[in-house]
Nucleic acid binder design. Sequence first.
DNA 1: CCGCTACTATTGAGTACGCAAGCAACTCTA
DNA 2: TAGAGTTGCTTGCGTACTCAATAGTAGCGG
Lengths: 167, 167
Amino acid sequence: MMSQVLSEQSTCVGAFVALLRAHAGITRQLSAQLTAEQGLTLSDFEVLLRLSRADDRRMRRVDLADQVLLSASGVTRLLDGLERHGLVARASCDSDRRVVYAVLTDAGLERLRTAAESHFGQVDAYFGTRFESDDLASLTNLLDRLAEGHPETEDCGPPDEYGRASR
Amino acid sequence: MMSQVLSEQSTCVGAFVALLRAHAGITRQLSAQLTAEQGLTLSDFEVLLRLSRADDRRMRRVDLADQVLLSASGVTRLLDGLERHGLVARASCDSDRRVVYAVLTDAGLERLRTAAESHFGQVDAYFGTRFESDDLASLTNLLDRLAEGHPETEDCGPPDEYGRASR
DNA sequence: CCGCTACTATTGAGTACGCAAGCAACTCTA
DNA sequence: TAGAGTTGCTTGCGTACTCAATAGTAGCGG
């Protein structure tokens, strides 16, 4: 009677917990695979991917940070690693000397190709075994709504294929 | 034609990305609030909550680790912190001297009460503004399916209220 | 009882972040 | 052209994890 502080819980809490669990489970598995087989973290991969899509295969670090949901310093350090491995290079900007572009190198593109094949396959496998295609669609839709209207995610640019709300 | 490595992407990848974004957004916001207002991390909170539900308000650390989706060492260190703050105490087990119970103290329960009120309110607010109740139900259902059948989550015990698949 | 394997918990080392502070370069105002 | 404010990036420091190695205990088959 007294220690059950939280017996009557809202459905919202249930949904939240379900999200936490689903996320933990899936990222653990997929990121372990990606790390083991390709030597890339999920964030590494996402960065390489966004760069491959960008004009001239280059992006400002700030924009990268927004799209990959990392802080500015997170991006700096993540790119440090990718630069050390030659997957990304830095380039300066003529019109604004504060900015340092991150440029995907040929090696980086090659690496991304290999990794993408394996990684996307695993994502498909993961979801494919659990969902029919219309469930998949509603899940995506619901999750998109959940991510909407974040202070930091407001006023989104046009969505692209990978990053759904490119912010 | 060549740099668009990944133009045709499966819906699965879209769903995965949506999950990553939704998770990042919601945990950032909620955990920031919880930390700022209550001085607890999301994991701290979840641990206190599970303890409050357990018989005698105590649990083995392994079991805690499973339920909170943390490694054994993660639990040790998390509990170190909670112990320092007097929210949790340790107790040994008579029948098996390997185990060290984590016990929720009265102070811990009190702290949990306050935190829960605020935190659950915020969770409700977050989801409530975005979803009708049937959408919420289908989201939860879909996420549960997504978390099912993890190698580590297999052979689940009976689910309880907070942790949906108590593993 | 002895040795074996399995399990619980802790510790050390390393990683991946975030926040706050700082510098440099840009923009705006006047 | 000086100053004020903003933006892009990096760095120092702290935190929250993980994995691998360790030690103590349990419980088995001989």
